[in-house]
Design a protein around this nucleic acid. Sequence first.
DNA 1: CTGAAAGCGCTTACAG
DNA 2: CTGAAAGCGCTTACAG
Lengths: 357, 357
Amino acid sequence: MGLPEPKRPKGPLTIYDVASRAGVSIASVSRVLNGQGSPRAATRDRVLQAVRELGFVPDGAARALSNGLKEVVGVVFRRGDETPFPDEDESFLFIDVIYRGIDLAARRQGFDVLMGSVGFNDGNVEARVAAVGGKADGLILHDRMIPATSITRLASLVPVVTLAGTPVPGAMNVRCDNDEGMRQLVRHLVLDHGYNELGYLSGRIDSPDNHARAKAIEAEAKAHGAQVAIGHDWQGDYSAAGGARVISGLLESGRKLPRAIVCANDQTALGVMHALGRRGLRVPQDVAVTGFDDVPVARHLHPPLTTVRQPMQELGAMAFAVLYSKISTGRGDSDVVLPVQLIVRESCGCAAAENGR
Amino acid sequence: MGLPEPKRPKGPLTIYDVASRAGVSIASVSRVLNGQGSPRAATRDRVLQAVRELGFVPDGAARALSNGLKEVVGVVFRRGDETPFPDEDESFLFIDVIYRGIDLAARRQGFDVLMGSVGFNDGNVEARVAAVGGKADGLILHDRMIPATSITRLASLVPVVTLAGTPVPGAMNVRCDNDEGMRQLVRHLVLDHGYNELGYLSGRIDSPDNHARAKAIEAEAKAHGAQVAIGHDWQGDYSAAGGARVISGLLESGRKLPRAIVCANDQTALGVMHALGRRGLRVPQDVAVTGFDDVPVARHLHPPLTTVRQPMQELGAMAFAVLYSKISTGRGDSDVVLPVQLIVRESCGCAAAENGR
DNA sequence: CTGAAAGCGCTTACAG
DNA sequence: CTGAAAGCGCTTACAG
């Protein structure tokens, strides 16, 4: 306003600059900035004015060190490496949706999200995770990217929540009800469509989610008298390329495909549909195909993909909630299971008209 | 190994715990951990072993405060609020792609990304941006979410890079060549297709990008003798709902639509195509429609959307590069312009066969 | 209500 | 090569 232009101090602005300009102690500045105590109105105003005039912003690192709270939650997940497979682009990485859930929930508590991704081929993942942990009050780990023992050890340093998998000792876990989702899907295929030969095109062999889904399909299929092809020849890796490779291999070896192919995830289903299309096989008339995840593009495929939707945004929100509880109260649920939803579109053989949503 | 179980100290593990277990000073621990100086092999080994045994991870806040580097880059952008418009889901927010570009570039320098999103209706955006700035070494701001003067002020505290817009004094800027992209698009429509009546369905009126695109279309259309409908009746807001609303309004008032509708972005184009479809108008036979951005789903629309691709991942990577330069050397480019690419699909009237990619 | 001072966990000259 | 000590910018008992 009418005040003389504040001469910018040489170094970065600190609380001392504000204090001296306002004619109070740094303790007072800190108090009005943080709403602690009951500063006199006059004090308050002078501090606020000085802050405004100088454009002061407190240093997060100093605050964190001082009060033991960074107000940062670290999130580490695997970033898919580049893939040239047609259509398998950014939109498939619904990890972003989990992120949004975390972000929204974190914001409500004044936390920010520190993002630490890891490529599949990155070395020294543990060091990277630890580094992020060192910059945060808590950690959300997607997938089992480091050994369980490492997670347990890390969890003794900073609260850890894992996503999608089974709980690890010492850490908390949040996941979707894969088992129930897969069972619903199988029932739809076997009971509603009458398919009695299924194939399970699996995800990465080391994935707990994959195991859970494989077990569920086998159990449910058996319960309803359907066959399910599964195993080595059906080994995918969660990628579209992997799904396409398996189908090509099967077809080239002259194998007859089952009536319906249940894929470990939507990306795999995409690859399967591509491979099928190349051989002139129609989906769903010749072979039904289903996915798992309900990534955004699933509904845009031809035909629209029948799949199981996992509530990813809620998953993220819940992960933060559990973590925040642990950070602030010292306790948090150790294994939260969220319900999933069967999304029936057309790739299973249902007609367009039947589609929900 | 054969060593006694390390008894966990009451408080969190610090460098003092490591030092005493290794029988050295904290200075030595710090040195081996950071690769400074030339510690004796024996010292090194003892420290490393103690670190391993205790599972020590240095506190990021303390490091940051001590050496003046947080190794964190803050990114703040607007998060679209929930929208129930069909198809306008997560996949449209290609901001995530920018993010990836930033993340990849940051990782290479040992930086992590602190994500601070802001909803369109959030109050006190400046405070939020400032808070993120206080936790980072530099800031990347998407869109002009706070006044230019605020950005300038903030930039005196911490290096700031803005994206998509015009440069602000004091801050650096990285953007795509909107102008050239729009001109190429108009030339394709007017010269290749012979459309001489265009309409520009604009973005938010306060958006610099929108102004740039509007100016470009007007200039290029005039240069080639085409008319362009633009202005109040054609005012959208970057959303699909906005695009649909404009078209409905135009049609209800009995207005004749131009031969081609150029939309400010892909989401708007999506809304336009929906509205057109509801009225029984065919794209591109009756009306051609184009977008801008090339979001992931653009190619999956019916018909596939002709649009202008902005290299979002590179935009992010460049933003970090510029910021990093500023942080480490004190200097950085103040306005970087990246080239865009015209993506011809079918919504402009081209046949499927002609499509690239 | 307010100020002086200690302390948060590191890093880094500065001496040895 | 290594240790003692200062200092990074805050917050928060502790006294007044």
